[in-house]
Nucleic acid binder design. Sequence first.
DNA 1: CTCCATTCGTTGGTGCGGCCAACGATACGG
DNA 2: CCGTATCGTTGGCCGCACCAACGAATGGAG
Lengths: 135, 135
Amino acid sequence: MLSQAAVHSRRFVAEGFTAADARGYHYRVLAALEEFGPASQADLGRRSRMDRSDVVAAVTELEEQGFVERSADPADRRRNVVTITRAGRQQLGRLDRVLDTVQDELLAPLSAAERQTLVALLGKLIEHHGGVPTS
Amino acid sequence: MLSQAAVHSRRFVAEGFTAADARGYHYRVLAALEEFGPASQADLGRRSRMDRSDVVAAVTELEEQGFVERSADPADRRRNVVTITRAGRQQLGRLDRVLDTVQDELLAPLSAAERQTLVALLGKLIEHHGGVPTS
DNA sequence: CTCCATTCGTTGGTGCGGCCAACGATACGG
DNA sequence: CCGTATCGTTGGCCGCACCAACGAATGGAG
């Protein structure tokens, strides 16, 4: 079952993330900022498939850690423009490395060809169900 | 990413389960009881990979719904023997059908051969990471 | 037979991910 | 100008997974 495999995945990811003092939401926000550039929080939510309220919490925490900056949007005073900082990019790099390691661990029993096949199949599933292929 | 696909899976499963007025923990307990017969709660936890405390809650709820019965074990007074009832078996059947439907939905974009491949690959992952292949 | 370690059920708490409702403030279209 | 929509924010809920601690009971070592 997919959920079964996902449990192990989750556990590995959680391990690595807590070691890096971060959570999934943090990574998603940072990744979205790096990929699309500064954005409003609502945009971040849409891009990262997160609820607006969860974006608020994540951005606040990232701001406290100095990984992003919040500033009012002069063009639309409802919006906050969130920008990734230099430190944020470094953190993102760390988390990326964590994910790479985790993925290696997770896919350890599979050959390179099998990994490719698995990724392709999962990609098909995600795409079909309206997912955003986040690498 | 595996987690990505799992999200959709989770959502589908959750939908179906809430429609059937059940949760994942309930299904796991019922399935374990059906497969291995009456068992103590600690055994259920080991078989279903659940924490003892979560087993307590699940069994209590299943008992309220009349799907299982709790009775003291005369041979070991620390234990409660949990038994699945007729109604419980019916509920398990319903949930099994729900899962079948969900799986079809989830794997819709894949051919039969692809599904088989995916299942095989995931099975490999789960087994390698010490998982219990729960169908 | 007496301790000691272990097991069992139970209670209560933590954390993460995902979601919803409501709000005041702002923006925008008719 | 007024209604509608969007944005950030607060606060809450649920499900899954996990941990710590407890009293009661068991079982093995001495």
